[in-house]
Each structure stands twice: as structure tokens, then as C-alpha cells.
Computed example of a mutant assay.
Amino acid sequence: MATEADYTLDKGDGGRTVLRLKGPYLLSTIANVDRGLRKLDDDIDVIDLAEVSEIDTVGAWFACTLARNHSASIENASERADRLLTAVGESANSTDISAPRLPLLTRAPEAMGEKVFEAGHGIVRVVGFFGQILAGVASLIRHPRRFRHRAMVHQFESVGVNALPIIGLMSFLIGIVIAQQGAVQLQAFGAEALTVNLVGRITLRELGVLMTAIMVAGRSGSAFAAQIGTMKLTEEIDAMRTIGISPVEVLVIPRLVACVFMMILLGFYASCMAIIGGAVVSDVMLGIPFWTFLMRIHEVVPAHDVWVGMIKAPVFGLIVGMSGCYQGMQVRGNSEEVGLRTTKAVVQAIFTVIVLDAFFAVFFTGIGWG
């Protein structure tokens, strides 16, 4: 008796093409003949099961599929094989597994409409989340003892203190790049002394706060989404609600407060480090003494440039914190969702910060702070 599934193809009586299946046609033995039988191009009139020693549901389905594809009949099936073939045949379904692909002219507008629809629902959910935050703040104002001071201090350390090295290094290098590239271009006009103006204004007004917000979004915003998302999966947030603790008050508000206040300090710190980097390059390349560069910054940079940066900083911090916490609270289902929501939190925060920065640039220019 054969121990592996096999088959032969020959001519039978009346010139009919007969496919003879041999051996056990079971889930464990059918793999070695599966590809060969699927590639058969010859017309088959009869599938003969006389030499099939054993058969299970998979083998019966395989025989039925062959018979259907080649419009062949099945003969010499045993009593067990006949019962399985009948059961499998009755469960056959010719319905397409996947929906037909729509034409491009239909598919593209439909996809765009779905995106717009999802964006509308997303805006409604974000507004609702912001409302929850306002309600939580009002509740904490009425009951200040419920505010988690230790959690806020921990977030101050995580968002602010621990970020000082990377933000300082990044800002220092950005200041070097701005001063070096600016000096190269300004030297062509004999105006390399204006490198001080370039570095001072662009860092204090724009790049210092903007690059800090991007770094905080990638570092702390992603951490917020991952931490809160993991707590959602492990049902810790549901447990908080069960015992009467508001997740917004415990998890969201301390993180938002830390982001808002630390963005002001980190933005100013980043601007100072960028100016120091520019001063170093100017001392080396342009012959402008280090301390002279710093004193010139005080003379050429108007005070309102500093205020522009400081006004934008808390708004950017609020956006980064809200994005991370919101996406973390939206986690559903499985651990893969944590990664997806973390990515969305970073992308959403950076995109919104850049859009708001463009708005602020137009607004402050319009009020005479250009």
C-alpha cells in the first residue's frame, strides 16, 4: 500500500483521459502532488479514485476542485470517499473571494471621499477629546487636591530635563549650519557681518522653537501615545474608570502641563544653543570674536522676536501633548495598533506644528512684528 499520494494520467476506454489518484489523499500527504496537479493542462474526462487508500476532507475537496476545473466526472469512489465528496460538493460556492476592483475614475474619488469623511470624524473626536480635557481642568480647579503633582514633576523631568542633551546638541549644530551657510552667501556681497542678524533672528523667532517642537514630538509625543496605548490594551484605563478615577485627570493633564511649560524653556534653551553655535563659527570663519557676536545679538535682534518664539512655544507644546495623548487613547484591538497610533501621533503633531508656524508667521507679520 502506498504511503504517499501519487497520480497517473493515461488513456482509458473510448479514448477518455483518466486521472488515477493513488495512495492516501490526506492533509499530511497531499503536499507532494498538489503543485503537479494544479499545473495539469491536459483535458481530463474522468478522475478515478479506485486506488485511493485513505481520504479526508482536504483530499475530497481537492478531488472536487479538480473535477470542477476540468469538467470531469469522479468514479470508483469508496463509500467514505463518496460521503466526503457529497458533503464537500454541497458546500461549494462560486462567489468571488474578493470584490471586483472598480475602475480608476471611480476608485480614486471614492478613496478621496473616504479620507475626507474620516478626517471629518477625526476632527469631531479631537474636539470631543479637547472638551474632556477642559472638563478635567475645571474639575481639578474645583478639587485641587486631586491634581497629581508627582506625576507632573515626573513628566517635567521626562519631557524637559532628559531632553536637554539632545536638543542642545541639535540646536548647536543647527546654529553652526546657519552661520556657515549664511556667511558663505553673504560674503559674495561683502555683508558677512549680517551673519549675526541672520542667526539671531531665525533662531529666536523660528527655528529654535520649531525644531524643539519637532524633537519633542518625536521623543515625548510618541512616548505618550505608546504609554497610554499600552495601558488601554492592558485595560488599566478601564480599571481606573471602574474605581472612579478619571484617566484624563491622571494621565493626560499632567503630560499636557509638562509639554506646555517645558516647551517654553526648551525653546529658549534651543535658541541660545543655536546662537552659541553661530558665534563659534563666526569666531573661526569670519573673525568676529565670540563675545562680540553675543553682544551684537542683543543689539540687532528686536525684543518682539523673542516674544514671537515664546508665544508659539506653549501652543506647540499643547499640540504635541494633545496629539500623543489623543492617539494613545484611540488604541483598540491589538499591540500592532500601538505602533500605528504612535506613528500617527508623531506625524500629526509635526504636521500641525508646521501649519501653525506658517499661520503665526503671516499673523505676526500682519501685526507689524515681521
Score class of each variant (00 low, 15 high):
1 M>H: 00
4 E>M: 09
4 E>V: 09
6 D>P: 04
11 K>M: 12
15 G>D: 08
18 V>H: 07
22 K>R: 12
29 T>F: 00
34 D>K: 06
39 K>Q: 07
40 L>R: 00
44 I>E: 06
46 V>F: 11
47 I>N: 01
51 E>M: 04
58 V>L: 01
59 G>S: 01
60 A>F: 15
62 F>T: 02
63 A>S: 01
64 C>A: 05
67 A>F: 05
68 R>A: 14
68 R>F: 10
71 S>T: 15
71 S>K: 12
72 A>I: 09
75 E>A: 08
78 S>R: 00
81 A>H: 09
81 A>C: 09
92 A>S: 06
92 A>C: 04
93 N>C: 10
94 S>D: 13
94 S>A: 14
101 R>F: 11
101 R>A: 05
109 P>D: 07
110 E>K: 04
114 E>S: 05
114 E>M: 07
115 K>G: 06
117 F>E: 10
119 A>Q: 07
123 I>H: 15
123 I>M: 08
125 R>A: 14
129 F>E: 15
130 F>Y: 06
133 I>D: 13
139 S>Y: 12
140 L>N: 04
140 L>Q: 08
142 R>E: 09
145 R>A: 12
146 R>E: 13
147 F>Q: 09
153 V>H: 14
155 Q>M: 13
158 S>P: 14
159 V>R: 03
162 N>Y: 01
162 N>R: 04
164 L>R: 02
168 G>K: 02
168 G>M: 02
171 S>G: 00
173 L>M: 03
173 L>A: 06
175 G>H: 00
175 G>I: 07
186 L>S: 10
187 Q>T: 06
188 A>N: 10
196 V>T: 14
197 N>F: 11
201 R>S: 14
202 I>W: 04
203 T>K: 02
203 T>L: 03
204 L>M: 04
206 E>W: 04
210 L>D: 14
212 T>A: 02
217 A>D: 14
219 R>N: 11
219 R>W: 12
222 S>C: 11
226 A>S: 15
226 A>N: 14
227 Q>V: 05
227 Q>P: 08
234 T>W: 00
234 T>I: 02
235 E>T: 01
235 E>W: 02
235 E>C: 03
236 E>K: 01
240 M>T: 01
243 I>C: 00
245 I>K: 05
249 E>K: 01
250 V>D: 12
253 I>R: 00
254 P>A: 06
257 V>T: 10
259 C>P: 11
264 I>K: 02
267 G>R: 01
269 Y>Q: 03
269 Y>N: 02
271 S>L: 09
271 S>D: 05
278 G>S: 06
280 V>N: 08
283 D>W: 08
287 G>W: 09
290 F>N: 13
290 F>L: 09
294 L>A: 03
295 M>Q: 08
296 R>F: 00
299 E>Y: 01
299 E>V: 01
301 V>Y: 07
305 D>R: 12
307 W>A: 13
308 V>K: 04
311 I>T: 10
321 G>K: 02
326 Y>L: 12
327 Q>V: 06
330 Q>H: 03
330 Q>E: 13
332 R>T: 15
333 G>Y: 08
333 G>N: 06
338 V>S: 10
344 K>C: 03
346 V>S: 06
347 V>Q: 11
348 Q>I: 11
351 F>C: 10
353 V>W: 13
353 V>Y: 08
353 V>C: 14
356 L>K: 03
357 D>N: 07
361 A>D: 15
361 A>C: 12
370 G>F: 13
370 G>R: 12
